[in-house]
Amino acid sequence: MVPLRFPDRPEDSERRAQITARHLLVGAFLVVAVATAAMFAQAATGHVASMHATSANVTVADYDVTDGDRLDLTLRVHNPTIRDLELGPALVNAYVDGEQTTDGTTTTFDGGPIPADETVEITGTLGLREAGGDRLRSADRVEVRGRLKVFVGDELIYVRVDTVGVSE
C-alpha cells in the first residue's frame, strides 16, 4: 500500500523546521565540542607531562677537557613524560672536590628536543675558570650540578641536575 500523502498542514512544516533547527544546533555543538576536545587532549597531556618532567633523569655520559680550555659535556637525559621536551638554556657547572671549575654561565645544549619516553644524549660546551682545566684533567670524579630548562609547549620546567662523571 502506498501511503496517502496529504497536503502539508501548517503544524507539519513548523515541526519540520523545528527538527532542522535541532539538527543545526546539534551539528554546531559537535563542531565546537570536537575542536575543544582536540585542544583539551593537548592541554591535558601537557599538564600531566609538565608535572612529570621534574623527575626526568640526568646523568653524565661523557666529559672531555679540550685544548682550548673548555669542557665538552655530554649528558644523558631520560624523558619519562608523554610529551616531547624542548631544551632551553641550562645552568650547569662542574665541580672537583666541591670546587667549581666552570665559569658559571648558561650553556646551550644540542641534541634536543627529547622525545617522549626516550633517552637522548645532549652535548654542550662549558667555559672554564682559571686553572679549571688542570683540575678537571687530574680529577677522577667530576660532579655536575645545576638545572636544565625544558619546555612542554610554552611551559617552562626546571630539571635538577645532580650527577657524577667518572674519568675513564
Binding site: A37, G153, D154, E155
Partner: peptide, 14 residues
C-alpha cells in the same frame, strides 16, 4: 574541557 583549555593555553600551541 573548555575551562581546562582556557586555563592552560601554554600547552595548546595555538
Amino acid at each position: 574541557m573548555g575551562a581546562f583549555v582556557y586555563n592552560t593555553p601554554q600547552f595548546v600551541g595555538l
